[in-house]
């Protein structure tokens, strides 16, 4: 049985006319790393909120269908217990700083304090999580004195430290440089290999192709396409629907028209492109 199941989920925010999510059917296996792509307003963030329980428990609005994680139904749970299983980090790092803590170390411990983790275990878990995401040297800094990218790492670490079974990330690398992005994808991949299920909204398709197990393309609140990263990210359907694709994909697509790309499949990453043009 799937670890995450969405069955006919349709959702409308209290003040909107049209549903933001329409008839979403989705199954995700335990330990799978799923990436969600889509243009603005496609419902990516709403999908994240739905998985993390904030839709509908926090935002209210009208929901139909069922969301099930780890055998529990969202509709029959309360938000304070749901968040123990599902962790959420979102885009704007500044607003994810609790504001109640004076150092990064304390900031990351905040969630563990809330759920009553004993002090010794708490310190160990915070230290481990910080070394995993590479922010150990920031421990004594004020979270407000950090750069956007550093704050995003702190936000990610603050959720990882709580060890959720399902990790939901909404553009967690939007303010990071390429090196930082790569490291975050690496960390997320590692968590997935250790059995954490990951749903990550991202625009950086080259990294998705390299690290994710599956890609879901959302458009206007519906699933347009889903499948293996290379199949989805190189599909003509995406380009026709105005999705951004990797520059290697579009280059090879043009090259194919001119007869310069001999392979059947288009590339997403630089390595695949180099490999394909060598032939």
């Amino acid at each position: 049985m799937a670890f995450v199941t969405l069955q006919n989920v349709t959702y409308k925010y209290p003040l909107t006319e049209k549903p933001v999510l329409q008839n979403i059917n989705l199954q995700i296996q335990e330990g799978e790393f799923v990436s969600v792509i889509g243009p603005n307003g496609a419902g990516k963030s709403t999908l994240c909120y739905a998985l993390a329980g904030f839709v509908p428990h926090f935002f209210k609005g009208e929901i139909s269908g069922e969301i099930e994680v780890d055998g529990k139904l969202s509709s029959k749970s309360t938000l304070d217990t749901w968040v123990l299983n599902v962790g959420l980090a979102f885009q704007n790092p500044f607003n994810q700083i609790s504001g109640a803590k004076y150092t990064v170390f304390e900031e990351i411990a905040f969630g563990l304090e809330n759920i009553g983790v004993p002090r010794d275990e708490m310190k160990k878990r915070v230290e481990d999580a910080m070394s995993l995401t590479g922010i150990s040297e920031l421990a004594d800094r004020s979270p407000y004195s950090l750069s956007g990218g550093q704050q995003q790492r702190v936000a990610l670490t603050s959720i990882l430290v709580m060890r959720p079974r399902l990790l939901v990330l909404d553009e967690p690398t939007s303010q990071m440089d390429p090196i930082g992005t790569r490291e975050v994808f690496g960390v997320v991949r590692k968590m997935a290999e250790e059995g954490m299920t990951v749903v990550m909204v991202e625009h950086k398709v080259e990294w998705i192709a390299e690290f994710a197990d599956r890609v879901i393309a959302l458009k206007e609140g519906q699933i347009l396409m889903e499948g293996k990263p290379n199949e989805v990210l190189t599909s003509d359907l995406l380009t026709e629907n105005g999705f951004g694709v990797s520059r290697y994909t579009s280059t090879a697509r043009e090259a194919k028209k001119q007869g310069l790309w001999k392979k059947q499949n288009l590339p997403v990453t630089l390595d695949e492109a180099v490999e394909g043009f060598k032939k």
Binding site: V83, L88, I97, E106, G111, N114, I115, G116, P118, I159
Partner: peptide, 22 residues
């Protein structure tokens, strides 16, 4: 957003809270 962020970190959890600092 901040309310969502701290809620996601168990702020309204009914567990007895612990504290990092002794």
């Amino acid at each position: 957003e901040r309310a969502i962020a701290i809620e996601a970190r168990g702020f309204t959890s009914k567990q007895v809270k612990t504290s990092l600092h002794e």
